[in-house]
Nucleic acid binder design. Structure first.
Lengths: 150, 150
DNA sequence: TTCTATGCAAATTCTTTGCATATCT
DNA sequence: AGATATGCAAAGAATTTGCATAGAA
């Protein structure tokens, strides 16, 4: 069940096909990096990893590909409240949108999903009258572990 | 009841004094701009407006002052989901934190505050176990007016 | 075959920094 | 007086763009 198995194309590749953008080798590499990432990556890191899959991948292509994926709402862009520097981080938008809660002591990020977030956003929509299509909620605070080890 | 009335010092100036950072003329100008702003300003715009109050204000000072105000949690930094370009926007954190809901059609921003946001964040804190100190929630969608005029 | 995406390098834009001087407290 | 903030100019990052070529549909 590899990510390259054509019968099980990745969410991102599928989304790209659906939107009639071309599936090229650099894009395949970048997408694979994003889908295999365990944490949040910046452009530098994505480029580095993508080069290991396809050495020809250029940083400019990474920017262009990320723009494309953002426009299609296939990836989200975060900045983790700048608690880790001024870079931007990217993640696949699979399994619905979610919040990011960053511990200001240890830097760990947890990602609440599902009903909690849905009801939160529903009530926001109700209060403003908007139809809300996407959102980004990033919060900073102290995680239970750090709170305990005082 | 002017913003310069020493008896009614601005929230930001008060906050600065409380934190023992110096109240200088450039900082006064920048703070006045932030407090009088009706909308969200980027660094360029803040610099321009501050120069009208104190012509000597330099862009570098604006960056340094905003950093200082962010560190003291007196202003918040937004990017409005990059729906208006890649710049950063700043606003005074008065009257508590709040969300920003941006209409993807007309660009208008509304700012839900108060109980809705508080309960939202409370539940997030409960779900993760974090003590949440600050947050940023930006959402994109279609506002009622735009929805109506289809 | 036609249209889109890429690499590359240069240009832009955004932000930070060193340092001598000016300014707050 | 003593510590901190400022202006300026230059450096450093981050991101975008023009263009000829390569590659997907």
């Amino acid at each position: 069940m590899s990510h390259r198995d054509p019968a099980h194309a990745s969410i991102l590749i599928e989304g790209m096909r659906k939107n009639r953008v071309r599936v090229t080798s650099p894009r395949r590499a970048i997408v694979q990096v994003l889908e295999e990432a365990e944490d949040h990556l910046d452009v530098e890191e994505i480029t580095e990893r993508a080069k290991k899959i396809d050495a020809s991948v250029h940083r400019a292509t990474v920017y262009r590909t990320l723009d494309m994926l953002k426009r299609l709402h296939l990836v989200d862009e975060l900045d983790l409240l700048h608690l880790r520097g001024d870079r931007h981080y990217y993640e696949v938008r699979s399994g619905g949108q979610h919040a990011h809660v960053i511990c200001t002591r240890c830097g760990k990020v947890v990602e609440p999903r599902g009903e909690i977030m849905a009801s939160c956003i529903d009530r926001l929509a109700e209060a403003t009258g908007h139809r809300i299509d996407f959102y980004r909620l990033e919060a900073g605070g102290v995680c239970p572990d750090c709170e305990a080890s005082d």
